[in-house]
């Protein structure tokens, strides 16, 4: 059985009990503020909030470990790329130059560059936990209705939710198809040369794609037979009214992000400059 990656499980934390809309709004506000601001002080405060909320949610590590590793690798690559392509970015931004170590050619390590890259890392760290939380601690059925409530068309929202509904089935289908193919000598393991493996992959993908198309046709017929897309607006079985707690959280998120933006832009620059 494939591991349950990025799947919802209700561990009953206060975060899980929040409305999906609340989580979506809080996530969006936090990401915008975190993306815009380079103010180290704000980012540090946001990081503390972000991590504590994540801690409260008690989401099991297993469920996001793989994604977390991916994000770590990606952000490491990102750091490296920033340094390779613009080693003097920090100097440009902060207007001073404190060289720590000359490496080679145009590459040297400056405090400014280090500080700048630390800020980039911080932004990642601020945004990732709420994003994971929205994915992991929102009941899948509430997903679509929350998206719809913040203005996404319900057809798009439902398409997303249906995709989630069918992912386990398609996974199972893939396992079945590929094992049957292996029996006919279509080997996908490392024993086969790469070129062959890619070719063999195609032999499995064709039936998988056809089976998926067949499935889509059936589902769309089923959707239409039950009046999907008939009206411009629809109601949701899983919509819940916002509770006091939700209002508080949204208000809190609005306040924090507003404060972050105000503090960040107070002196006219997005960057907090400790060098002057």
């Amino acid at each position: 059985m494939p591991p349950k990656l990025l799947s919802y499980s209700d561990v009953g934390s206060p975060v899980h009990r929040l409305n999906g809309v609340t989580k979506l709004i809080a996530f969006l506000l936090f990401s915008i503020a975190g993306m815009v601001s380079y103010d180290t002080r704000c980012l540090l405060v946001m990081l503390v909030i972000s991590l504590s909320v994540f801690y409260i949610s008690k989401v099991p590590f297993k469920q996001y470990s793989f994604v977390l590793y991916l994000i770590l690798i990606f952000s490491a690559l990102n750091q490296l790329a920033i340094f390779l392509f613009s080693p003097e970015q920090g100097v440009q931004i902060y207007g001073t130059r404190h060289e720590l170590l000359h490496i080679a050619g145009r590459y040297s390590l400056t405090s400014e560059q280090l500080f700048y890259q630390f800020n980039v890392l911080l932004k990642f760290a601020v945004v990732v936990p709420p994003a994971l939380l929205f994915l992991l601690a929102t009941e899948p059925s509430e997903f679509a209705s929350s998206l719809n409530r913040v203005g996404v068309s319900y057809k798009v929202a439902y398409a997303i939710s249906l995709t989630m509904r069918y992912i386990p089935d398609v996974q199972q289908e893939y396992v079945n198809i590929s094992t049957a193919a292996q029996a006919r000598g279509i080997d996908l393991s490392k024993k086969e040369k790469l070129g062959r493996r890619v070719k063999n992959m195609a032999a499995i993908l064709l039936p998988l794609v056809l089976a998926t198309l067949e499935r889509i046709e059936k589902v769309s017929a089923a959707l239409e037979l039950r009046g999907f897309g008939r009206k411009r607006k629809r109601t949701w079985y899983r919509s819940r009214p916002l509770t006091k707690r939700d209002t508080l959280v949204i208000a809190g998120a609005v306040l924090i992000s507003a404060a972050v933006l105000v503090i960040t832009f107070w002196d006219g620059s997005r960057f907090y400059n400790p060098f002057v």
Binding site: P140, S141, S161, L162, M164, R165, D169, R215, K218, V219, A221, A222, L223, L225, R226, Y237
Partner: peptide, 12 residues
Amino acid sequence: MQDPDGQFVGLT
């Protein structure tokens, strides 16, 4: 329709 699996559109 036939195939109850294919026409199950809800998550619950």
